[in-house]
């Protein structure tokens, strides 16, 4: 992580617990990190690890249990605003700056509205334009930015394929000229060819408009392709966070190692030592003290069950939540 400039967004000790019948579900448990302006932070983890909840808490589609999400004030000032604490009217203003693209392009669009109205919705509710004509122009402009043909403006979502629907979702999130966009699994529901088109689109939009992204995905090769830095989540906690190259070349946390080794590579003869983890992800309801990965870890020691490892910076820009991270570095990462 570069120390040069102040971060654009700082997440501090964010927690999100849900009440359930069998106890408190720790969806996001004491997570801290920051994102630089114009950067893409990848957030990976398996289902139920809390990555989507975290994304929603950051832009306050969910109310967090505790902690702060600090966003740089509007251009020119050095101050920060805590998104989790602002009033409803301030939040309405902030909504223009922080946006989200959803995973499922089939359920995130109102099936009863045509493309034109779907894209215009953010402009209408925020009363951006007084006259219809300039709004119509803006809608057309957005459609061309995301690569939707103008003739589609009267189509309904069910008439379009997943890729085009996702383009509508992206156009909606761009409508208000945001600075920061949470991309919640934006390509997971798409076929590889369409996925590549959407990834290229997101990439070129970032270059053109300087957006800051948090890219949430369970697909590691996609995350590696788009991210500058990657945070790996396991059961509500970030277990490792570092530059994407370092993370993939030399993963330190045992979970990251297992996760990376599990990716099937589309090449024949490239044998990798696969770490097959035992068992399943444990329940996030009332997790016990100690390391969350304890039960499946192949390095575990007695200390891991007593103390919860903190996310520590073991090298500049390299964060790991494992008691033995330094020893693992000394061994040169994976022992295998």
């Amino acid at each position: 992580m570069s120390e040069k400039s102040a971060p654009y967004i700082r997440v501090e000790n964010l927690k999100k617990y849900f009440h359930t019948k069998s106890g408190m579900l720790h969806a996001v448990d004491d997570v801290s990190f920051s994102v630089q302006k114009g950067e893409t932070l990848g957030l990976v983890g398996e289902s139920g690890c809390g990555k989507s909840t975290l994304g929603r808490c950051i832009i306050r589609l969910l109310e967090s249990t505790s902690g702060r999400v600090l966003i740089t004030d509007e251009k020119g000032t050095d101050g920060y605003t805590d998104i989790t604490k602002v009033s409803a009217s301030q939040m309405k203003e902030l909504r223009k700056r922080v946006q989200i693209v959803f995973q499922d392009p089939y359920s995130c669009l109102n099936p009863r509205l045509p493309v034109r109205e779907l894209i215009a919705e953010p402009l209408i509710v925020n009363r951006v334009f007084r006259d219809k004509a300039s709004m119509q122009r803006r809608v057309r402009e957005l459609m061309s930015i995301v690569g939707l043909a103008e003739r589609l403006e009267n189509s309904f979502p069910h008439e379009l394929d997943g890729g085009r629907r996702q383009r509508i979702g992206i156009a909606r999130s761009l409508a208000l000229d945001p600075e920061f966009i949470v991309l919640d699994e934006p390509v997971s529901a798409l076929d590889v060819c369409i996925q590549a088109q959407i990834l290229n689109l997101l990439n070129s939009l970032q270059k053109q408009f300087g957006y800051t992204y948090i890219f949430i995905s369970h697909n590691l090769s996609v995350v590696k392709h788009v991210s500058d830095r990657i945070a790996v989540m396991y059961l509500g906690k970030i277990v490792e966070l570092s530059d994407y190259k370092i993370l993939f070349k030399d993963p330190l946390h045992p979970y990251t190692q297992a996760l990376l080794s599990a990716i099937p590579i589309p090449k024949v003869g490239v044998r990798r030592d696969r770490i097959i983890l035992e068992g399943d992800v444990p329940s996030p309801i009332e997790p016990p003290e100690g390391c969350r990965f304890l039960g499946r870890c192949f390095y575990r020691q007695e200390r891991c069950g007593r103390e919860t490892p903190e996310l520590r910076e073991i090298e500049p820009g390299r964060f790991v939540a494992c008691h033995f991270a330094r020893e693992l570095v000394a061994q040169g990462g994976r022992t295998a």
């Binding site: 890729g163 290229n200 993939f248």
Partner: peptide
Amino acid sequence: VGLFKSVPDLEEDCDELSVIPGLM
């Protein structure tokens, strides 16, 4: 060939994925 190229490569970095133009 197009299918293989549209999958992001884990070993190598590339700025832009090559895509098959058009739709199914």
